[in-house]
Write a protein that binds this DNA or RNA. Structure first.
Length: 694
DNA sequence: GGTTAGGCTTTG
């Protein structure tokens, strides 16, 4: 046994001797009875050959990470005496994070409480910031060794004395008993474990102090609170203030104030910042906090202590209508103000990370859909979040949010960013929202639905007999008799390219006499169809029906603005590849009509409501082509689902999702009457659930 | 070895 241990031990002793390390030298001083065996074990040097066996025993003990068998005495806070040095346990009721004092050291102020119901305010100094107690949360349990008790302002006060050391434990019952400490070796007995556990249980029953930690979803305006959160962006505002963009996976239900930052000044991943724009808050930190804020790493979990949720002051008359919140970390260290970075193994950090990961997955539209019910709690917040990601502002996310009642008071034209719920919308039959718009004459027509198209083509085939066509050099004609009761004839004129007929999927055909259903069938096989009719042995366009059909796209021309030319003009396109609808419209003198969804939204926030149109940017908003939806039942279903997410009529309005929208106001003359209209622009829907629907 | 700060009714 001796042989085994003597080598490493004597090696260490020799090294200790060389470096004159006082830890291994004999030192008998007039220390208090409980003093520091863990830091300065009373060991005799091997080279001196005095009491070598004792020295070895100590070293072996040290190597095995066990403190010497010295027993510490702990004093209840109610039993402390002036001008003594004591060891104490306690629950943290207040603390200031270490900060640079005006002297040479860092300083930290900690108030603790124990079962004697006596509080002790302590002030600790150290040149090494890490040596100060690592407290992150009210309720943490601490063990202090060698604090000097003295009187100040008629109260007993604790202060760090020579050899001061601290252990800190999480205050939650059942959290791991891992001490946070800068001490390389420390004594922690099973009795100490019991003391920590007893204090954890004891503080559960305490009414008097509660942690001021809040989630963003339960912050009340005017409150000061501690926030554990992840840093997603940061930016220097000026010398005395710094911006932190943070989120905690929950959503603040009050409208928030956003700080304007030039794009180049903002640090952080743009995609994350955009994706989280509705969940992340802007916190402005001031003065002494700026230096630390600068050093924070994007993505890290931090605690901001004593954040102030303050009503935004517009400075105007309508103080009562201010509806959004600013978040500030004011300068100074009063009330424990500061920013801390808890260790990654901290229970609260792990919990936060779990929630953020899950919310991230749900909000990330590129990952497969995950059933919320398959996830473990706590995911009520998640469901809330998922609802909230319903819009994205690609261009103007830095704009401040304007309450709806302020918009109604403003003159036009102007642009705003709003946050509102969709209280109702019109038309309810979604097919009625599909319109044809002429950008030239600004006319707006209903897009013909299936029924009207059936009628249009029925009338047409009844009205005009099939031409006696002869084949020409640029098309070849075939006539079929339907063989149905109506004994109708359908003519198809196959357009040749390079003097040749193409495969159906590349072909342009001109069709005469076909019904709506037949055209639908033909459109699934042929690349492009132009419905035509005969007039005096010639084929011609008729804009009362679609001028061109390409798959699910049925395109129309403006009857007023088009200047129809002969179909022979198509010959100019015969040498080009493909059949470009725009080129064909141009060749035939057709002014194409644009398909739009035109909807009327009643938007509502806490301050009022606003009627806004969605039309010119409706395709961008829904990311559904309105030119195809009438021929595509999947797209129709998708639009229905979107509208039922935005405006779920089975729920209370309080449960409707919030939408961030850009709104522009403009003056419009309707029936000789000037009025201000509002239109949604630069806004995209982003409903993760729906991305699985194609 | 001295000094530092000595929570507290906050607010850009």
């Amino acid at each position: 046994m001796n042989r085994h241990v003597s080598h490493p031990a004597s090696h260490i002793l020799q090294r200790a001797h060389k470096s004159n390390d006082s830890r291994y030298s004999t030192q008998r001083s007039s220390r208090p009875p409980n003093s520091e065996p863990e830091r300065r074990p009373s060991v005799t040097c091997l080279r001196c050959r005095r009491d070598g066996r004792t020295a070895l025993r100590y070293l072996i003990t040290l190597l095995l990470f066990q403190g010497p068998a010295q027993k510490y005495v702990y004093t209840a806070l109610g039993q402390l005496k002036e001008d003594t040095v004591a060891n104490v346990f306690g629950v943290v009721t207040f603390f200031k994070l270490p900060y640079r004092s005006k002297g040479t050291d860092f300083c930290s102020v900690v108030t603790i409480l124990d079962q004697s119901n006596v509080k002790l305010k302590c002030t600790f100094f150290s040149g090494n910031q890490d040596a100060l107690p690592r407290i992150y949360k009210i309720g943490d349990i601490v063990r202090f060794h060698r604090i000097k008790i003295q009187r100040f302002n008629d109260e007993l006060q604790g202060i760090s004395s020579s050899g001061f050391s601290a252990l800190v434990f999480e205050g939650t019952v059942d959290a791991p008993l891992i001490p946070r400490t800068a001490s390389k070796s420390y004594n922690f007995t099973t009795e100490d474990q019991k003391t920590v556990e007893t204090l954890r249980n004891w503080q559960l029953g305490l009414q008097n102090f509660t942690s001021s930690r809040r989630n963003l979803s339960n912050v009340q305006p005017g409150q000061y609170f501690d926030l554990i959160c992840q840093l997603v962006g940061k930016a220097e505002i000026d010398k005395a203030s710094y911006l932190l963009k943070v989120w905690d996976g929950t959503r603040c239900s009050t409208l928030q104030w956003k700080v304007y930052v030039e794009d180049y000044a903002l640090e952080g991943d743009r995609d994350s910042i955009t994706r989280l724009q509705d969940l992340a808050i802007d916190v402005l930190v001031y003065d002494n906090h700026v230096e630390l804020a600068k050093s924070l790493k994007i993505g890290s979990c931090i605690v901001i202590h004593n954040v102030h949720a303050k009503w935004h002051n517009t400075g105007g008359e309508n103080q009562g209508h201010d509806t959004y919140l600013e978040f500030h970390l004011h300068g100074g260290t009063c009330y424990g103000r500061g920013i801390s970075v808890p260790p990654e193994d901290d229970s609260d950090v792990k919990e936060l990370q779990k929630v953020l990961d899950a919310v991230g997955i749900v909000s990330d539209v590129t990952t497969p859909h995950i059933q919320l019910s398959q996830m473990s709690p706590p995911f009520d917040a998640l469901k809330r979040c998922q609802q909230l990601f319903v819009t994205v502002l690609p261009a103007h996310q830095q704009w401040q949010i304007t309450p709806l009642n302020n918009i109604a008071k403003s003159k036009a034209p102007q642009k705003f960013r709003i946050r509102a719920r969709l209280k109702s919308f019109q038309p309810h039959h979604l097919y009625q929202s599909v319109k044809l718009h002429c950008t030239k004459c600004n006319s707006l027509l209903d897009a013909p639905d299936e029924q009207s198209l059936t009628k249009i083509f029925e009338d047409r085939s009844n009205g005009s007999p099939i031409t006696n066509t002869t084949n020409t050099f640029w098309y070849r004609s075939e006539v079929w008799n339907t063989g149905n009761l109506d004994n109708r004839a359908v003519a198809i004129h196959f357009v040749k390219k390079y003097d040749d007929l193409q495969n159906p999927e590349n072909s342009l055909i001109m069709v005469e006499g076909a019904s709506f259903k037949e055209l639908c069938k033909l459109s699934t096989h042929f690349n492009t169809i132009i419905p035509v009719k005969s007039k005096e042995e010639n084929l011609e366009l008729d804009l009362s029906a679609p001028f061109l059909i390409q798959g699910k796209k049925w395109l129309y021309g403006c009857m007023k603005c088009s200047n129809i030319k002969s179909l022979e003009e198509l010959k100019s396109l015969l040498l080009e590849t493909g059949w470009d609808a725009m080129e064909m419209a141009k060749a035939l003198g057709v002014e194409l009509l644009t398909h739009l969804f035109v909807m009327n939204f009643i938007l509502e926030d806490e301050t009022g409501s606003l009627k806004a149109y969605l039309w010119r940017e409706s395709e961008r908003f829904f990311q559904i082509p309105p030119s195809e939806i009438l021929m595509d039942s999947d797209l129709q279903e998708k639009l229905h689902m979107i509208m039922s997410v935005l405006c779920p009529s089975t729920k209370q309005i309080g449960e409707y999702p919030w939408m961030d929208c850009c709104i522009r106001s403009y003056n419009s003359n309707v029936g000789g009457k000037e009025q201000i209209c509002y239109e949604v622009f630069d806004t995209l829907l982003s409903v993760p659930d729906l991305d699985t629907i194609k």
